[in-house]
């Protein structure tokens, strides 16, 4: 196989991983105040108070909530912001 073929294959793999939608998942913890979590969602995602509280309650009751879906780079940026506010958040591949 020529070097150029390898390069093309690797490039395709990279592009596929970027194309897949990624979820930003907020996780429950027993310490963070519910009001605080909702305010962080408003600050980071620009959610309305109602939407922020809906996600906060989902985190509280189900242990996790998908708070955003989109490209990986932006998902990582959101996770970084959530970590900056000390929320537990991860990224995962969407379906």
């Amino acid at each position: 196989m020529a070097d150029s073929d390898v390069l093309i294959e690797e490039q395709t793999k990279t592009d596929e991983s970027l194309d897949v939608p990624w979820n930003v998942v907020a996780h429950n913890d027993p310490i963070n105040l519910m009001d605080y979590v909702a305010k962080v969602f408003i600050r980071v995602f620009g959610f309305t108070k109602q939407k922020a509280e809906r996600h906060m309650m989902e985190v509280h009751k189900k242990g996790r909530s998908i708070v955003w879906t989109g490209g990986r780079e932006r998902a990582e940026l959101y996770v970084q912001q959530l970590h900056g506010f000390l929320l537990q958040a991860t990224i995962e591949k969407g379906r």
Partner: peptide, 9 residues
């Protein structure tokens, strides 16, 4: 570990 979690755990 709690203050600096990782993005994919």
């Amino acid at each position: 570990a709690r203050l600096y979690p990782t993005p994919t755990d």
